[in-house]
Design a protein around this nucleic acid. Structure first.
Lengths: 230, 230
DNA sequence: TTTGCAAAAATGTGATCACAAAATGAGATT
DNA sequence: AATCTCATTTTGTGATCACATTTTTGCAAA
């Protein structure tokens, strides 16, 4: 029996067992803690989370709704496998969704919020220098999320996070094989564009950031990574 | 006690109770059977579906993951309310997602598939003439879905359907107050563009279809509808 | 060593129950 | 008539169990 390693996660007071299980598993998948093809069991996770099947099953069901997991025909629960074509599809979706979200956030961002975003960008570099890949990844997600969620009535963030979740497993593999995370410096560009309230430039910077970051892996590189992981 | 009316739905052999509950409720919300703000109960639905709380609760949890329902702080389960701003957000997301999906589907569509799409378009008009709004709506969704899912490795369809689900409740209200469903004839335009393999023209036609169809309701019209429904 | 098959274990599913929290309603008070 | 209080009911939560299916294991035959 292999013990499933889950990232640490403080359980806030009053959080239901189900919500805790969901948040914990979601976070684990998002930062690449599970490899593609990994299979999980309800009872196994219930034990790892010190609870019972019912809330865990609900959490797993929710995770399948957002593409983070898959219930197979034979009732097995697995982390979806990634193909180069699927990867390309995910990246192009990220670009479409996030340029859209970024463009529509511009008008809602205050000067103060933009400074906060710049601070988050600085923290990304700090984490990279400290060699903490997962922390850098989380900070990078916070950078994007903080921009997009400036728009108060927005629906798009859950959809974007669904795509992030689906990219999580390959991201985990990439982190194992890339000695250092390099972040293309499109963030500064995006921040400058935010200050100028230039919606097109913001959208372009975000698109370029994705394309040159994780999106920079071409199909061959992804195929290579998947071969290494197999 | 009010009996919840759910659209008919044959239960395929071998389908689990949970899957059935999920499909049934999802379909009901998608075609506007629930009004915004409606609250549902686990036990109530379990009784209506002749099953027990466990599978129903799982289905409800999944539906919240895709924005079709909401678990409130006080543990009440409701159909999300719509504001004019949220409505506008949903429409702009539909345009972004569906133009993207349509563009990327073009290369995968065979002549035969395009003819099938044209046939679906004809059936929409039939249903409108027969006065069956729900059937027309379902056929319209099939028209869009058939185009987008021509791309085999696509991830976008579940995201699009999440947006459709969130538009469902207001769509139901609109159907109550609009005597006849008018469908803008952008479908022919899209089909012609598909035949020419003109990706830009397809994307434009789909965007226009959404903008002039349900997207044609401006914020005032939506506010008016919501007032009527309240 | 490999293959085939039956027993055993593991696993998802769904119903049920006890519990706590929230909502509801009746009756008293102002 | 309106408001507050408290008992009752409703409702979500989570643990448990029985059942059916699938997977794994163990052992014998080729």
């Amino acid at each position: 029996m292999k013990t499933t390693t889950l990232p640490l996660f403080d359980r806030p007071e009053g959080m239901t067992t189900h919500d805790y299980a969901f948040a914990r598993l979601r976070q684990a998948i998002m930062v690449g803690s599970f490899r593609p093809g990994t299979s999980v069991t309800i009872r196994g996770l219930a034990e790892a989370l010190e609870s019972s099947p019912t809330p865990v099953r609900e959490a797993l069901r929710q995770l399948t709704s957002i593409g983070a997991l898959q219930f197979l025909e034979n009732r097995r629960i697995v982390v979806p496998r990634i193909t180069p074509a699927r990867f390309e599809e995910l990246i192009s979706l990220r670009i479409a969704l996030e340029s859209h979200a970024a463009r529509r956030a511009v008008a809602h961002l205050s000067e103060r919020q933009i400074e906060r975003i710049a601070a988050i960008d600085d923290s990304i570099e700090d984490e990279i220098n400290r060699g903490d890949q997962v922390a850098a990844l989380i900070a990078n997600q916070a950078f994007h999320r903080t921009i997009y969620t400036a728009n108060p009535d927005q629906i798009v963030m859950p959809l974007i996070e669904s795509v992030w979740l689906q990219l999580g497993p390959i991201l985990g593999i990439a982190m194992e094989h890339v000695s250092e995370l390099y972040v293309v410096d499109r963030h500064r560009e995006a921040i400058e564009a935010l200050r100028r309230r230039d919606e097109d430039a913001v959208a372009d910077a975000i698109a370029a950031d994705i394309r040159e970051g994780i999106g920079g892996f071409d199909q061959q590189a992804v195929a290579h990574l998947l071969k290494l992981a197999a």
